[in-house]
Write a protein that binds this DNA or RNA. Sequence first.
RNA 1: GGGCGCGUGGCUCAGCCUGGAUAGAGCGAUCGGCUUCGGACCGAUAAGUCAGGGGUUCAAAUCCUCUCGCGCCCA
Length: 566
Amino acid sequence: MDFKTKISELLHHETGLSKDKIINLIEIPPDPKLGDYAFPCFMLSKELKKSPQNIALELKDKLTKLNIDHKYFELIKNESAYINFYVSKTLYIENTLKKILKEKNEFGKNPDSGQTILVESPGPNTNKPLHLGHLRNMLLGQSLYNILKSQGHKVHIVNVVNDRGIHICKSMLAYIKLGKNSEPDIKPDHFVGNYYVEYQKLEDNDSEIKKEVEEMLIKWEHNDPETIALWKKMNNWALLGFKETYNKLDFKIDKEYFESDTYKHGKEIILQGLKDKIFSKDENENIVFDSQDLGKKVILRANGTSVYITQDIYMAWLRHKDFDFDAMYYVVGNEQDYHFKVLFQIFEALKWKFADKCYHFSYGMVELPEGKMKSREGNVVDTDELIENVNEIALQELRNRYKEINEEELKKRSLIISLAAIRFFFLKYDPKKNFVFNPKESLSFEGETGPYIEYSHARINSIFKKAEQKPESDTSYELLAEQFNLVKILNQYSEVIKQAANELKPSIIARYLLELSQAFNEFYQTIPVLNADPEYRKARLLLIYCVQIILNSGMRLLNIEPIDEM
RNA sequence: GGGCGCGUGGCUCAGCCUGGAUAGAGCGAUCGGCUUCGGACCGAUAAGUCAGGGGUUCAAAUCCUCUCGCGCCCA
């Protein structure tokens, strides 16, 4: 039985409060001197018409007179309005470490829930390569995937490829004018993206070109063979390039939906909705959805052409048909908050049974120190470039440090370290908040970074390489009393995962990994493991082994590959 | 014009949903730590009107409200 439950039993008996309520109220004191758990008595004050301080004192006296089993608590005190519980350290340490050693990577995770969950990410446009916004999207999507999976759900990543429309035609037109049928001599999505930037320059010199783009879009919509052939060619280049980036990031998509396949659908749904009076027509004959709190929104133009939301409606329906999901999270930037509010209200108006199972996982924009990224103006930080730059810095760092290690091994390590740095940097922030990506500061390998976590992991690994001794659960747990705080942090891991899953915040795991690493490094600095007396050595090896298990497990939830040697 | 979000040491952030015991980190600054397991590390010091006003409460960074500043969306 765990300690909180034990406390709830004791207090339930004395106060009559329900055990669940007590467990909810129990807090962890800000200072370990105040015990390991504390129960605040403020809320009993009104009912008992006594000061919370007196209630705490009286309750504490009652509890200590009970002559309770000292197996669980070595001390119960009271400090102002709190009852403070001091757990039996040895028992706590033994319980925690044995559980981690037994469950290993499964510690804190849940068995099969029977739920199917979709995560939509990253939704690229085929006219330009993936930038930092997409990178944040993918890293969040991927981590969400891992976290939801750890809770026992069956998770699929689905993608929507925006492969048609006026912006796609722009890079096509520039290619016709400037590309002269050339084949990509660089990464193909960058090749396509360059023509998108070139188009903008053309337009700046001659605004007449807009008409040409519009004509091209009409040709595309009428299946003009030449236009379609070019479109296919360039889209394939873009998709090929994306695939390469996905692979670098180990980003696995289960199913892709193409806008070019879905954009004509959805009309039937809208027209049926019009008949059912769910939708109406505005003064210009557009079909609109009229929401009380969000205003009118056009969902099908008078000329019968669809707008963005038209196909979103269809695609949700299609995905539900494909996966029969229990939840779907759209990983999409917060600039589309309004769009999704309307979309979900439409699902409800249509009385679709999955209407309340769709969520917008809204994340903040990535900004540069000089302001917002604008792909039209070409001032974007590109995902591939970023990975390459960070990798180069990491490699240089490794070369300086380890002159005797061969280049091939260094390259292997630098890739892991640089990806850890990037992933951790993007995931340590609250997803919903905007953040500024400052290339200089963001590439740091010291302090609250991925490499810091990796370093802690590698240190433990290094000890075991020299130890020639395996961790065993048969050890003297009382010898770890000084490391009680570190064990407490280990024990928190299962609650941390749960919280991260409930709040959909990978950042909670990132913060936790920092806390654990800090506690471990502090221990490492002052307490010898290999050179300690045999009994201590044995106990401490078990302790750091458990730290490694948790570091490993947490890193994997963020898709960071644990490294054995830095 | 309407809606949504954000504002916490010099900088970057955590804490806010679910109010509670001295507001926590990292970077930067200053000082210190390798005869012991990896210094991408550890310790210490300085630095905060929690944007501002009002309210609710025994108690507010946290809840409500207004104002200001920044960002995004809709028209």
